[in-house]
Design a protein around this nucleic acid. Structure first.
Lengths: 345, 345
DNA sequence: CTGAAAGCGCTTACAG
DNA sequence: CTGAAAGCGCTTACAG
């Protein structure tokens, strides 16, 4: 690299100490009561020489890097890449840069990313937590590292979480299917203790209960992230390929599940929404292209990203942050896939 | 944050100087000829105390950050988020962390990201260059900053570019349509001087010429990124909504164009591939869901990411890098949307 | 109002 | 084989 211009160069040029230059260039000329003329001259010279501070040096001294670490499940999944984009924008508004990593839903990867980011002295972390990784956050808490969880958490009382109201969102989705005349509604969900899944399942049950429909636990099929494709296929076969289908509608608990399921259903000998009603979770471009445009639960990603960054900023600056999860509303987008199947009844 | 354990702490614990600890922990015990026993002890204690080096301090001293800057057009676009994922993985294999930013195809944003990344002392940059931003790279060259361009460039002679063979890929796509009986083939492309577009257009012309079809410049419609939706719609209306359609097949030059076009065509009163053959550029989940699964040019993103990172690593390490662009092959994925329309002729 | 100096946590020539 | 010390480029109490 070429020789960069340093504080010292400016100091020499102007004929003052580096201290003055530093004060002026970091906006502390008032506190340090730097002479007005000298301050003006320093600014002018700095500009002329196109001075760019060495942020590494500044960080070493200040202990702050103006950098956030963001750990997602998978940046190549649209849901997360959109979130990443928003978080980068929000962070930038506060003068922060973001480092991103994908955990692939694996504890070890998540831990490795946390370690890497801490070694790089990030000022705070935004994390989509992985099943079974609770310990990681106890450690972070002990270390006093500012962090906020997004999308999911481990318990309702977790202090620093920004999530949608999954239970209500899920209730609305399933309730829509019921209102539209479907009666045997199956669900495909992840097999995990994370709260977002728990709540989505709870919302499903709420909707059945509220409408006086019986709960059949067999109609909630659990799938595993690491063999998702097979599991989804198996679940759909279970639901639909018997002599008489077990369900007349399905609710998919995430966009990754939805994508695979829709692809498989696309090749099946049945018609959505007449033979099968569908509501999915999370947005996807593909929903528009399914022959019956897909109804889905839309999360307000902008708001999630914004709240997560705001909250983290407050923690970093040592401000008091309200305890308990921060909940953001979700919207049910009603399209063709969810009925009206039996309006004529 | 909690008190971190420092080199000094280990030195005190073992009863040696920080120099020895540093040598041992950075694998220089051989060169520094540290005693075998003392080395073993240092390692043991470091492990016991869970020492994590302060990478900021190391960077300040060494002048290297083991960080790469990655500037994409838009991380929320699947094409780029998949690429980002691959580049992160590849960089990690070399012990590097990646900072990502989205330029939104704007020169100023791209410049701002470059400045931010340089201030953070990244060791190198991987950049998807923006229309009209050529100057940025002259400056980087002067500053001796290692960087490689991906996906596009400014001229064929550009030294550090990793791209697919766009001209051939495009030729193959259009040639397929012609082989399948289509005769009046339109193209929607970006209005830009960047080489990838130039080459995709050239490939289109090659295919017409090779097959003895006349070139009608009116059938190449140029659209602008910043009003893409309107422009694509306008182009499609031009092509298809006259009394007699002007084309019987269309070639879309990027996935962003493809997505909008397919959505619009989905609502039109015509049948793919019978009334209209289609080939798109770049992969998309949505292509599977279009009623006639879409044929497309598939880039080898893994190879692009890998070559880009490898090349950058070599530059960073001061190795000789071969001049000229590095070209990666593309694959034509043939599905339903591209015909055979007129096989019966 | 301004300068000399310490210090952030490392790495690495240098001396012994 | 090992230690004392300089230095990376900043920031900031301290002294004057």
């Amino acid at each position: 690299m070429a020789k960069k211009v340093l504080l010292k160069d400016i100091a020499n040029e102007v004929g003052v100490s580096t201290a003055l230059v530093s004060y002026v260039l970091t906006g502390k000329e008032k506190e340090a009561r730097v002479g007005v003329e000298i301050a003006a001259k320093i600014k002018k010279v700095a500009k002329k020489m196109n001075y760019q501070p060495n942020l590494i040096a500044r960080s070493l001294k200040s202990g702050r890097t103006k950098t956030l670490g963001l750990i997602l499940a998978d940046i190549s999944n649209t849901f997360f890449s959109m979130l990443a984009r928003i978080i980068e924008n929000e962070a930038d508004l506060h003068g922060y840069t973001v480092i991103i990593g994908s955990s692939d839903e694996k504890i070890e990867k998540s831990q490795k990313l946390i370690d890497t980011f801490l070694n790089r002295s990030v000022d705070g972390l935004i994390i989509v937590p992985v099943e079974g990784s609770r310990r990681q956050f106890n450690v972070l808490n002990q270390m006093n590292v500012p962090f906020v969880l997004i999308d999911r958490s481990f318990s309702e009382k977790d202090a620093n979480v920004v999530v949608i109201d999954n239970r209500t969102a899920s209730f609305n989705a399933v309730n829509l299917l019921i209102q539209n005349g479907y009666r045997r509604i199956g669900m495909i969900a992840y097999d995990t203790d994370l709260t977002h899944m728990q709540n989505r399942t709870a919302g499903y049950k709420d909707a059945l209960g509220k409408n006086g429909l019986p709960l059949d636990e067999q109609l909630i099929r659990k799938v595993t992230y690491h063999k998702l494709s097979d599991d989804v296929r198996e679940a759909l076969d279970y639901f639909l390929t018997g002599k008489k289908p077990l369900v007349d509608a399905l609710f998919f608990a995430t966009n990754s599940i939805s994508l695979l399921a829709l692809k498989y259903i696309n090749g099946m000998n049945l018609k959505v929404p007449d033979d099968l009603g569908i509501v999915c979770f999370d947005e996807s471009e593909t929903y528009d292209f399914f022959y019956a445009p897909v109804s889905f639960v839309k999360q307000d990603l902008q708001l999630i990203g914004q709240k997560a960054v705001d909250r983290l900023m407050n923690m970093i600056e040592g401000k008091q942050v309200p305890r308990g999860p921060e909940t953001v509303p979700a919207t049910l987008m009603i399209r063709a896939s969810s009925g009206n199947k039996k309006n004529s009844d």
